[in-house]
């Protein structure tokens, strides 16, 4: 059996690593354990839907993936690289530098439940802002890319509109374009349609589905069971800070084996 040096071991891991590798993630808010040892993996190009009742920790877990929340235990690897922390020679984990975290975050796109569009910028400027500031893309190039992305989500004629003039569905589509502007390898969706009126949900799901079909790796926290069933490659059901059940959409949604899953689905479907 060949012996690999530490450095090349890391290289091998990175080359073959899943896009997301969460190992035993724990998170406590003021003595309230929200995540109690969550382990899961997402392969490149896979679409994973996370479902569960509110308070189950699914949104918290998603936010841990791009270190918007600091974890209290376990490790998260994004594309083979440890997220948010640096490993010391003695194995301890130390908080990583801000620039490193920002660098890793730049490769992860996140779409929020309440859109969080930059209110003082037009839709076009929203999409242009990050590539210019973070990747130092020339303004002209950023603008062309922004227009192209807005065209992709069907909003090229709203390029000069301010967020306050857009409907919820339009805002969310701009938010998706904004996240895509950084050319991420992973997209996180935090209940992206939960704050939308029912007739606006469809246009956003359509964009998300298109992204999935193009091969984007996506982790989607959602209540839209239809979306989970049709678009997701895998569905994870979380409750009380644990992963209760996971499998293909057919397995988890149509034929759940755990009682808690069945109870939840009975209420939702």
């Amino acid at each position: 059996m060949a012996v690999y040096s530490q450095a090349s071991q890391a290289q091998v891991y990175k080359a073959t690593a899943p896009m997301v590798d969460a190992q035993n993630v724990e998170k406590t808010f003021h003595r309230n354990p929200v995540l109690r040892g969550v382990s899961m993996q997402v392969r490149k190009g896979e679409v994973v839907a996370i479902i569960g009742p509110s308070g189950s920790g699914k949104t918290t877990f998603l936010r841990c993936l791009n270190h918007l929340e600091k974890i209290n235990g376990g490790r998260i690897y994004i594309d083979g690289e440890l997220m948010g922390y640096r490993e010391q020679p003695d194995g301890r984990l130390v908080e990583d530098s801000e620039s490193n975290i920002a660098r890793m975050r730049a490769q992860i796109g996140m779409v929020f439940q309440r859109f969080n569009l930059f209110a003082h910028l037009t839709a076009l400027q929203n999409v242009m802002e990050a590539p210019i500031q973070v990747k130092h893309m020339p303004r002209q190039m950023a603008e062309e890319q922004a227009r192209e992305l807005l065209r992709k989500v069907g909003l090229e004629y709203k390029a000069d509109a301010y967020p306050s003039r857009l409907s919820g569905g339009q805002q969310q589509r701009v938010a998706i374009a904004r996240a895509l502007a950084m050319d991420p390898k992973l997209m996180l969706f935090d209940e992206a349609t939960s704050a939308l009126d029912p007739e606006l949900v469809g246009e956003v799901l359509k964009v998300m589905r298109q992204l999935a079909e193009e091969g984007m790796t996506m982790v989607v926290v959602t209540h839209e069971m239809g979306f989970a069933r049709e678009v997701a490659d895998r569905v994870i059901f979380m409750d009380g800070g644990y992963i209760v059940e996971q499998g293909s959409p057919d397995q988890v949604i149509n034929h759940p084996t755990q009682e808690r899953t069945q109870n939840f689905l009975r209420k939702v479907l």
Partner: peptide, 22 residues
């Protein structure tokens, strides 16, 4: 709204950039 800074951070901006630009 704190979501503004969170969105900025999620795009890869540092705290300073988020403050200054957003």
């Amino acid at each position: 709204d704190i979501g503004q800074m969170e969105a900025a951070k999620s795009l890869g901006m540092t705290y300073a950039q988020g403050m200054r630009r957003i």
